[in-house]
Design a protein around this nucleic acid. Structure first.
Lengths: 142, 142
DNA sequence: ATGTATTTGCAAATATTTTGCAATCATTTT
DNA sequence: AAAATGATTGCAAAATATTTGCAAATACAT
């Protein structure tokens, strides 16, 4: 489905900036901060407040997810109904890498939670923190 | 090991506030924000900056972990070598609940990551987002 | 008890996100 | 296609969260 239809369906009008922000998120394989997105927007740029307002709107309508990684700021990513990612984050350089969960059996986990806590799981986030190959060799911490 | 020894071992002096902050984190079964901690400190309270500085110091020395849950601010929790928690967070009311991972087989997951990406996993964080029992009945969203 | 390095309080600086309001834009109705 | 209406935008200012410089106070090894 194209972005314009996607927006319409969610009851959001398709404005210039909203559309661009959604495109940027769609094209990024990593979650982005508001600043990242601001920087990637073409000139003439909108006001930063506009970026924030749009992100909030998109999150509210469940088109975008807000994730918070490690000790840094908020990140945003497009919600794609058919795929979700797990992430590995280097504690030394902060680099983030995302990968499709392979053989991730969290479904059964979620079922357990439903049974035990009567909590309805809608999504999960799984991040691994550690040291990336580059930092391992740079700092010999093996 | 008592807190004082723990601090010493990490090369941190045992100051009044550092000690209190560590105690508060130890006694909490949930991660806390800087504000939470500030509020829980006894009168006369230290400066908020002192809380921040201590938290940063404790994180740096790996006595405390900084986690970021959902869309809210930074949370801090004591690192306990022998246990780690997973969390369920209600997207509606923001309530956080922690539980000991039961039959969590992320170890093999971590091994895979090591093999595939040559990334050294040091810790992971797993959170489930959804709707808590109370909000489910309040808002009939089943 | 003393000396030194670390920590603290305070106030001010940064950083991040939100808000009010008038002007502008998107979309529906005519 | 123009008008009407409701949502969105820019701008500046506010709110919130976190960090910093510096002088005074504290921790702790000697």
């Amino acid at each position: 489905m194209d972005r314009k239809t996607r927006l319409k369906q969610s009851g959001l009008s398709c404005t210039r900036w909203r559309y661009s922000i959604l495109k940027i998120l769609k094209d990024s394989h990593l979650p982005l901060t508001s600043k990242d997105i601001y920087k990637m927007l073409p000139n003439p740029k909108p006001n930063l407040a506009t970026v924030y307002r749009n992100l909030n709107r998109l999150v509210e309508k469940n088109l975008v997810r807000c994730v918070t990684l490690g000790e840094r700021a908020r990140y945003y990513e497009l919600i794609q109904p058919d795929s979700h990612k797990h992430r590995i984050i280097c504690k030394t350089c902060g680099q983030i890498e995302a990968f499709e969960p392979v053989g991730c059996d969290l479904k059964s986990f979620e079922k357990l939670i439903r049974e035990k806590f009567n909590f309805k799981v809608e999504e999960h986030s799984l991040e691994f923190f550690g040291t990336c190959p580059r930092c391992q060799s740079l700092y010999q911490q093996n």
